[in-house]
Design a binder for these strands. Sequence first.
DNA 1: AATGTTTATCGTAATATTGCAATATTAAAT
DNA 2: ATTTAATATTGCAATATTACGATAAACATT
Lengths: 109, 109
Amino acid sequence: MGATKTEHFTNKQNSIATITKALGHPARIAIIEYLVKVDTCICGDIVNKLPLAQPTISQHLKELKNAGLIKGNIEGNTICYCIDWKAIEKLQNYFASISMKMEKKNNCC
Amino acid sequence: MGATKTEHFTNKQNSIATITKALGHPARIAIIEYLVKVDTCICGDIVNKLPLAQPTISQHLKELKNAGLIKGNIEGNTICYCIDWKAIEKLQNYFASISMKMEKKNNCC
DNA sequence: AATGTTTATCGTAATATTGCAATATTAAAT
DNA sequence: ATTTAATATTGCAATATTACGATAAACATT
């Protein structure tokens, strides 16, 4: 096997899993943190900041983009990446709603 | 390769990535949602609720446990799993701090 | 003690991910 | 038109993940 059985789960479950999966790698967390840190949307010096080869970074950026976590703007020669806050908000709302649901319940462990 | 280069990233980055990675599968999201939903900590009927074989569920539970997202209590024959809220809180705080940092910045995309 | 129930582990096949060298693509600068 | 710079894509090797049948382990029930 090896393939996730997405068809057995709800769209929302798959959608949250897609976002968290994209964040499930330290390099991609580091990219997100870098994009948060820099004031303007700087593009390819992510490659200089991270200890990974350029094709590897490019691939991680692609995955973040596919998951909707970042947006990319072509600016002449370079590409300006920045965080897409809708995805972050979606996650925040999701975890907040989970936490709220739990406050009314007993915790047995 | 295929092996993540964790040694190049900070402990915090690796720690967040470990949690998000564990959440990066719809079955594990479904397990978390089920544990949130049931009032008391019901154990192995997770297997009955999800469309996956028992060994597969057991494996997913192990991963959630390793990532610190759930706790398991042995109760005689059965095992009582429930959410470990420390991990969820950690994520919430992380995303909240990221969001706050961004409010002071320009968004160029 | 023998049987059933619940959960974990082992082994393994199918597939996905990670990482990078080599190369391609695109646009700017000369 | 060439060259340079920035980014993407391709191809591939190493490793990890996903899923499940078979089996084991632990306990409860009879």
